[in-house]
């Protein structure tokens, strides 16, 4: 990594229903780890991760929010000024998809105008085997674990102009891709373009301030 390279700080917020795997996605991305029992997120957790995409380095400042319904009114504090958002649902839980839709609507209405939103259908590992199994193709089968089809996710993403992924924090499937793709969509940060407070650019090589920070080569 060249030391003179610009580091773009990107504020990214994770939203979604409780227990869809928001914190796990972050943990996978930041530490390439997976944990069954993690302390619950009170309000929100803050983590950072550096990522090199092509010739630019992005420092993700990740706000991982609590999913419990009653914490939702706190969300504006966290998505304020965010340049990117990850709206997560669980492909086995249709309710979480409805909630995702609400979050997308809210972000469009309330968040920064140019926010990049990625829609993530998480827990792909649970449905992976049945997806590959041709014999269980019947869509109406109740025994199928997948309750939100790829098509539904894709349609929502197309309608609302979102990036779309199906991921698994457990196996790591597609996780880095989500963050890399978001990074590619972040506009080249030059200080003159930035509206005040919209984007933070780290021009100096400041010492890493967060103990959770690490680097990854995506």
């Amino acid at each position: 990594m060249s030391s003179n390279k610009q580091i773009t700080a990107v504020k990214l917020v994770l939203l979604g229903e409780a227990a869809v795997g928001k914190s796990s996605l972050v943990l996978r991305f930041v530490s390439n780890d997976f944990q069954e029992n993690k302390e619950p997120t009170i309000g929100a957790a803050f983590l950072t991760q550096r990522c090199t995409i092509g010739d630019k380095t992005i420092k993700y400042e990740i706000w991982d929010t609590a999913g419990q319904e009653r914490f939702q009114s706190l969300a504006p504090m966290y998505y304020r000024n965010a340049q990117a958002a990850l709206v997560v649902y669980d492909v086995t839980k249709p309710k979480s998809f409805i909630k995702a839709r609400h979050w997308v609507n809210e972000l469009h209405e309330q968040a920064s105008k140019n926010i990049i939103i990625a829609l993530c259908g998480n827990k792909y590992d649970i449905v992976e085997s049945e997806d590959n199994d041709v014999s269980t193709e019947n869509e109406d089968d109740d025994s199928r674990k997948r309750k939100v089809s790829v098509q539904e996710g894709q349609t929502l993403a197309d309608d609302e102009g979102l990036l779309f992924f199906e991921t698994s924090a457990k196996t790591g499937f597609n996780v880095n891709e989500v963050f890399t793709t978001i990074g590619k969509h972040i506009p080249e940060a030059t200080s003159s373009e930035n509206a005040a407070g919209q984007e933070r650019v780290d021009l100096t090589n400041r010492l890493d301030s967060s103990s959770t920070e690490s680097t990854c080569q995506c």
Binding site: A9, F46, T48, E61, S210
Partner: peptide, 13 residues
């Protein structure tokens, strides 16, 4: 500190 993240790090320490 110049942003929330840095403050959080100070408190954590």
């Amino acid at each position: 500190c110049e942003d929330d993240g840095e403050c959080i790090a100070v408190f954590k320490d």
